[in-house]
Nucleic acid binder design. Structure first.
Lengths: 203, 203
DNA sequence: ACATTTGTCAACCATTTGGTTAAACTAAAT
DNA sequence: ATTTAGTTTAACCAAATGGTTGACAAATGT
C-alpha cells in the first residue's frame, strides 16, 4: 500500500472541501463538486470521511482552529488594553484579507446550527473573555480607561474588525465603491479602527 | 373563484416562505416545508410564484425593503451626526430585536450571490452614502467632529449595531452568557453604542 | 343557467443527491 | 511469487427535491 499517497489524497480532499464549503456552505455544497475539485472519485470522499457531515465538520473545525488563536491574543496576553486593541486590529485585518471567506463561513454555519458551538467550547483553547474582563476593570480603576463593561468593549472590537468583511457586498453597494477601493478602505482600517476605539475608551 | 381567498393564500405563502427562507437560507429551504407551514399544497407555491427562485426573490426583496428605510434615516435626514447616531442606534436595535433573522439572512444571501445587489441598487430608495459624507465633512470643518472619513464612520456605525446580532452564537459562547443575558446586553447597547461612537468622534 | 376563469389538490415525473458495492489495482511484506 | 492490506474506480441505489399534470371545485360574468 502507499502510505504517502493516502495522506496526499486526504489532504487534496480537505483542501477542495474547504474551498467548496467555505463559499457555498453546508447546504449549498455538493459532494460531486468537491470530488471534481480534488480530482478524485466521489466514492473517495466517503472512503476518507464517511459522510458529508463528517467532512464538513473537519473543514469547520479546521477553520475555527485558525480563527481562535487570533482572538486569544487579545483575550489572554499581557499587554495593556490599548496595545492589545492596536495589535489585534492590525493583525486581524491582515489575517482576514488572506482568508476572506472564513468569518462569514463560521458565522453562517453557527447560525444554521447553533448547538454546534457546544462541541467547540469543550476543546481547550476556546476563547474565553474572563481574563479580559478583569483587565478592563483594573484599568478603569487605575483611571486609564473610561468606565465600560468588558463584554461591550469586546463586542465592539469584534464588530468593528469583522463586520465589514462579512457584509462586504452591502458595504460596497452603499458606499458605491469597487473591490479595489474596498480593499483600500479595509487597509486604512488597520489603524483607523484602533484609533476609533482608543479615542472612545481612553481617559 | 375567491378573490378574498387567493390574496389570503398568496400571503400565507409569503409569510411561510419568509420564515423558512430567513432561517434556512435559499439552499437549505425546502418547498415542501414552506407548503406545510402555509397549510397548502406544494403545487400552490408554483401556481403563485412559479419557481423556488422567484419565491425566494419575493422574500428577499421584502426583507430588504424593511431594512432600507432604517438606513435611510441616518443617511438622509437633517439632524446632526450626533443626533443621528443616537437615534439610529436606539431605533435599529429595537428593530432588529423584532426581526432577529433579518440581517444574517440578507448578508448570507448576498454573499452567496453578490450580483443580486445590482438589481436592488436600481430601485429607488436604495441607501446611498453621498449626503452623509458631505455632512461629515461639514461638521468636521465646523469643529464639531474630529477628522474621519464618512465611509469609515458609516461602516463603524453599521458594524457596532448589526454585528452582534449576526454573530450572536459566537458572542454568547465567548462571553459565556445565555439568551437572557444576551438580550440584556443588546438592550444596554441602545445607549452604550451611541455613547461609544460619540465619545470617539466628538471634539 | 351556463360557459369561463380562477383556485386547489393528489398523484406523478425527471433529475439530483448522498451514499454503497464489488471488483480492480497498487505496492509493500513474506 | 504469493499474500496482504490499503487505495481507487465505475456502476448502482434509494431518497429527496423542484416542478408538472389533469381532474375537480368555487366563483364570476353574461
Amino acid at each position: 500500500m502507499a502510505k504517502t499517497k493516502d495522506i496526499n489524497t486526504e489532504n487534496q480532499i480537505l483542501e477542495a472541501a474547504k474551498k467548496v464549503f467555505q463559499i457555498k456552505g453546508m447546504d449549498g455544497a455538493r459532494m460531486q463538486e468537491i470530488a471534481d475539485k480534488a480530482k478524485i472519485n466521489k466514492a473517495m470522499l466517503h472512503y476518507y470521511y464517511r459522510s458529508k457531515q463528517l467532512l464538513f465538520e473537519a473543514v469547520f473545525k479546521n477553520a475555527f482552529a485558525l480563527l481562535a488563536p487570533q482572538l486569544n491574543t487579545i483575550l489572554n496576553d499581557d499587554s495593556s488594553i490599548e496595545e492589545k486593541v492596536r495589535n489585534f486590529t492590525s493583525n486581524y485585518i491582515s489575517f482576514i484579507i488572506k482568508h476572506p471567506y472564513l468569518p462569514s463561513f463560521i458565522i453562517q454555519e453557527l447560525n444554521r446550527n447553533p448547538e454546534f458551538i457546544l462541541k467547540l467550547k469543550e476543546q481547550k483553547g476556546f476563547p474565553n473573555i474572563a481574563k479580559f474582563k478583569k483587565q478592563v476593570i483594573l484599568e478603569i480603576e487605575k483611571g486609564i480607561l473610561k468606565p465600560i463593561k468588558g463584554e461591550q468593549l469586546f463586542i465592539n472590537i469584534l464588530s468593528l474588525n469583522i463586520f465589514p468583511f462579512v457584509a462586504s457586498p452591502l458595504i460596497k453597494a452603499f458606499a458605491n465603491i469597487d473591490n479595489k477601493e474596498f480593499k483600500q478602505l479595509m487597509n486604512d482600517r488597520k489603524t483607523e479602527v484602533a484609533n476609533f476605539i482608543v479615542n472612545s475608551i481612553k481617559t
